[in-house]
Amino acid sequence: MNLDFSQLGPYIPFLLQGIWITLKFVFVSILIGLILGTLLALCKITRHSILTWFANAYTSIFRGTPLILQLMIIFYAIPQLTGYDIPTFLAAILAFGLNSAAYVSEIIRAGIMAVDKGQVEAAEALGIPYRPMMLNIILPQAVKNILPALMNEFITLTKESAVVSTIGYLDLMRRAQIIGAQLYRNFEPLLVAGLIYWVMVVILTKLGSILERRLRASD
């Protein structure tokens, strides 16, 4: 075993730029997943059967097929169908955002169902309309209960983001591979990339527990 990190030196800035590239698209994907997932969750609990059907079908498809396949379809099939040459960033946030929404919608649905139904009744009895009731009364309580599950989903997404290297998006993973090919040494760049992913997840976990503690202020 002869590890040699010294040759990695000149490539470090190139690798570190990957952190920002990865973070940027992970952040946008989480945001898309969260917003779309919340809307899907609301569709699942309404009495409008068409919306419920749509949301369930959506979840079934995006949860039932591999993420890498969804990414490939978005990146390769859209140009073939429409002639629009989709940029890698857009393809990446679409695939990860749409995929994450399916999982997030199930988490949020479970969270909403777990809120005491007396809360809805109390809000209704006060004449509070649906939208503020959901936004200010039901969802805050739901989010508090599901925060660990949501954090789990965000962590998974952060790590799985490495899959975008397959469509040539210059994220952390792709950069590690490129450096490896240049140096004919793969272990060192992959090890450093692995360390960076781990640190990102640790920071994310820490942020999650801070948020959790703040939400528990009312207990």
Partner: peptide, 30 residues
Amino acid sequence: RKHIGMVFQQFNLFPHMTVLENVTYAPQKV
């Protein structure tokens, strides 16, 4: 419902709001 107040067996206060916020929320929003 704006004109009919209701009090429940299980209170159904909003647990994530302070006492004052519980009382002020509806008049402000509704």
